[in-house]
């Protein structure tokens, strides 16, 4: 049941979005030289088709929701299983986002080490020693591989972290 609601929500979202993007395309600056197949030419084809199909999809989901309308009440109850799973996905997602921010500001070494440590708690795992050793080793190997062997740059972070990281790479 919940997935039908989600389906409807997503199809409607895409429907609205494709109409919005069609109009954004309509507002693209015009080119004098290529006016007959301008920047908006292709996006308009795509988003018009998409609006059409997502429209049909949305209507179909509404119909199928109606058919099973009486089960509506069960749509919002979640099993404990589902909740725990959703929680882990969100935790992982949040950690990745934090890592992304830290990646830029703390530099590669600190951010990576911390992320490897914390993210390993999201999925059940008992051995704490391995956790630390792995996080440390993997970070060191990556830093050596990218900066020394390949001479490719890694983020150094900003401010004081920059000074710290310049020492290593």
């Amino acid at each position: 049941m919940a997935h039908r609601l989600l389906d409807l929500a997503f199809a409607s979202l895409l429907f609205g979005l494709s109409i919005f993007l069609w109009f954004v395309a309509d507002g693209f600056p015009e080119s004098r030289r290529f006016a007959q197949a301008d920047a908006d030419f292709w996006p308009k084809i795509i988003f018009a088709t998409m609006a059409l199909i997502t429209g049909i999809l949305a209507i179909r989901s509404v119909l199928s929701l109606r058919q099973s309308g009486e089960e509506m009440a069960g749509a919002f109850t979640m099993t404990a299983d589902f909740r725990a799973s959703a929680l882990r996905v969100c935790a992982m997602g949040a950690l990745i986002l934090i890592y992304f921010v830290a990646f830029q500001h703390l530099g590669f070494i600190l951010a990576t080490f911390a992320f490897l440590m914390l993210a390993s708690f999201v999925i059940p795992y008992k051995n704490n020693v391995t956790r630390v050793i792995f996080a440390a080793c993997f970070t060191v190997v990556l830093v050596l591989f990218f900066t020394q062997a390949l001479e490719l740059p890694l983020p150094r972070g900003s401010g004081v972290f920059y000074d710290l990281n310049v020492l290593f790479y």
Binding site: M92, T112, L116, S120, F121, V122, I123, L154
Partner: peptide, 20 residues
């Protein structure tokens, strides 16, 4: 290897690879 270690390591590798 346990996925608790491999999963985050994949994330790190993807981030690093794409950045580099």
């Amino acid at each position: 290897a346990p996925y608790a270690l491999v999963g985050p390591a994949i994330v790190v590798l993807c981030m690093t690879g794409v950045y580099a």
